[in-house]
């Protein structure tokens, strides 16, 4: 098993994130890329997986339009979920052929990685059989939803670090009624890790859980390059950072 490459993509439109994942999945299946963990920063967005039911959406299209929230239907498992600022979204591009093509074990590994990360912050996360995701004291702190194409996984997990939990009122998260969402910030207050710290800790735990001997930070450009998507030169980050202000 090789090194797990980890990249923070920075601000990423949901559509662009999806396109990058799909290109990377193709490259992974064809041997042009290794296993990747991508951290996109998505603007608020609702996505619905293949087991989505219209009843899980609690808000009308007008409200969503007013809030500037787009809804995407995606080929992952699971029902409705929300992504947005303050949440650590991790796309896991992993060749499952090299891991016995065991889907459930992969899900358990994702859960396990988040649970051990939570442990490092002193939180007892748990997996609840039949309710995939990670829970802390009966409240849901992370959601999972995975897609597999040519035995390469994509999509992944969303860990609530410090999002506005009010967004989850727009839906019945994961199609579950009466479910309480929580976050690291609500559980830990000022002791909660920053997103940057969370990225580091989760990456390390994921590499360990998936049996990678090492992991390393890569640039978003390198992810795009391996995915066969055009890259920019190194002046671009500076320009983007300047425009960011």
């Amino acid at each position: 098993m090789t090194t797990l490459s980890v990249a923070h993509l920075g601000p990423t439109a949901y559509r662009d994130g999806l396109a990058l994942q799909e290109s990377l999945v193709r490259a992974r299946a064809e041997g042009g890329a290794g296993d990747w963990l991508l951290y996109p920063d998505h603007p608020p967005v609702l996505t619905v997986g293949r087991s989505g039911s219209p009843g899980s959406l609690r808000s009308d299209p007008e409200t969503l339009r007013r809030l500037g929230i787009e809804v995407f239907e995606v080929a992952r498992g699971g029902d409705f979920t929300w992504h947005g600022p303050g949440q650590l979204v991790g796309y896991v591009i992993c060749d499952l052929s090299k891991r016995g093509r065991d889907l459930r074990r992969f899900l358990r590994d994702l859960e396990g990685c988040l649970i051990s990360a939570l442990g490092e912050w002193g939180l007892a996360g748990e997996a609840v059989p039949g309710r995939t995701g990670v829970w802390v004291g009966g409240e849901k702190i992370a959601s999972l939803g995975v897609a597999v194409r040519r035995w390469v996984s994509y999509h992944g997990f969303a860990l609530n670090v410090a999002p506005d939990l009010g967004f989850f009122d727009l839906i019945h998260p994961c199609g579950l009624r009466g479910i309480q969402m929580t976050s690291l910030a609500s559980k830990l207050g000022p002791a909660a890790p920053t997103l940057a710290e969370a990225r580091e800790v989760v990456a390390r735990n994921l590499a360990e859980r998936l049996g990678h001997p090492a992991w390393r930070w890569e640039t978003a450009d390198e992810a795009r390059r391996q995915a066969g998507v055009a890259t920019t030169d190194m002046r671009e980050p500076v320009r983007a950072a300047l425009n960011h202000r």
């Binding site: 293949r50 498992g77 889907l103």
Partner: peptide, 18 residues
């Protein structure tokens, strides 16, 4: 050959079957 035919879902994983 290898073209995705169908998506099968189990738990929270959605798999394309080529």
């Amino acid at each position: 050959k290898e073209e995705p035919l169908v998506e099968i879902q189990t738990d929270k994983i959605n798999v394309e079957i080529p």
